[in-house]
């Protein structure tokens, strides 16, 4: 061995050895994973070897070792609303000004000026999430949700108009709605249910969907400051099956695990929450 800068030959030797080892390992993995295993597994799935290889590579759906189940199903969905980029763009681009005029003409008789309802028969809309209003109006229009007053109103509106009304009510601060009488303050058990949920009944906290910016379903409405009478009626309707436009039973499921007393107290808690 001579003391000189390490030369090309030695680099070649190490580089060659390393490359051979890497190539060998790769060859083994590729041949075993993409060819040998699927071909040997194919008989169990009842498929030909070529299909099995395609499944192992990911070119075809399914496992190379197991048969794919047949799909034979048609059933009616509970809501037609889809949260697609197109829908979200309509909502984001909606102009609240025509929405204000529409609301004045169509909604304010029941839901009050600026969405603050004077009657316990109708919910507040002021400061409600635009996506929630849009979802419910769409469902009234499609028949997924029925209400003798709302359904005919919604059927007269276009998609864009729904979004404009949603944008108008969404533009208010929620605080105004929470100025009504307060109940349920200091109800520790209900506050716990709303903020912590109940693992024993697999009940998630109400707040994990019904507060702003919690990453829950887009259509979840804000509950704080809502009329307690309206909240209670809706919980009963979900539990009793009169209302069923909640996608994947989210509210039918939750409400069926609540007692009547809890529904009352939750409704009061949320009316008092600002």
């Amino acid at each position: 061995m001579t003391e000189q800068p390490t030369g090309g030959r030695e680099r070649d030797r190490w580089g060659f050895a390393a490359a051979m080892v890497v190539a060998g390992v790769l060859l083994f993995s590729v041949v075993m994973g993409l060819i040998v295993l699927p071909v040997l597994q194919a008989p169990n799935a009842g498929i030909d070897p070529w299909t099995a290889i395609c499944r192992a590579v990911g070119l075809k759906a399914g496992s190379p070792a197991q048969p794919q189940p047949p799909v034979s199903a048609t059933a009616a969905p509970v809501s037609q609303v889809r949260w697609t980029p197109a829908t979200l763009k309509i909502l984001a681009a909606a102009d609240p000004r025509p929405g204000a005029a529409l609301a004045q003409a169509v909604c304010s008789a029941c839901h009050g000026e600026a969405g603050l309802s004077p009657s316990t028969d109708f919910p507040h809309l002021s400061g409600q999430s635009g996506a929630a209003i849009y979802k419910q109006l769409s469902d009234f229009r499609s028949g997924a949700r029925f209400n003798a007053q709302m359904t005919p109103v919604a059927k007269k509106l276009t998609d864009e108009q729904l979004a404009q009304i949603a944008a108008y009510y969404g533009s208010f601060s929620r605080r105004a709605a929470a100025l009504g009488p307060r109940y349920g303050i200091g109800d520790a058990a209900i506050s716990r249910l709303a903020n912590r949920g109940d693992p024993a009944r697999a009940l998630p906290p109400c707040e994990s969907c019904h507060a702003r910016g919690v990453g829950g379903p887009p259509e979840a409405p804000v509950l704080s400051g809502q009329q307690r009478e309206y909240l209670y009626r809706q919980l009963r309707a979900f539990a009793g099956g009169q209302r069923g436009n909640d996608v994947y039973r989210r509210m039918r499921d939750v409400s069926s695990h609540l007692s009547d007393d809890e529904m009352h107290r939750l409704a009061e808690f949320y009316q008092g929450l600002s």
Partner: peptide, 28 residues
């Protein structure tokens, strides 16, 4: 006193990493 160039630098190894990544992550 001296070590093979391959174990004193990283050129060879970077090429091999690139090949491995291409096979392991290319199609995925």
């Amino acid at each position: 006193q001296r070590v093979p160039a391959a174990l004193n630098g990283f050129t060879v190894w970077n090429v091999l990493v690139a090949i491995l990544m291409l096979v392991a992550y290319g199609f995925p």
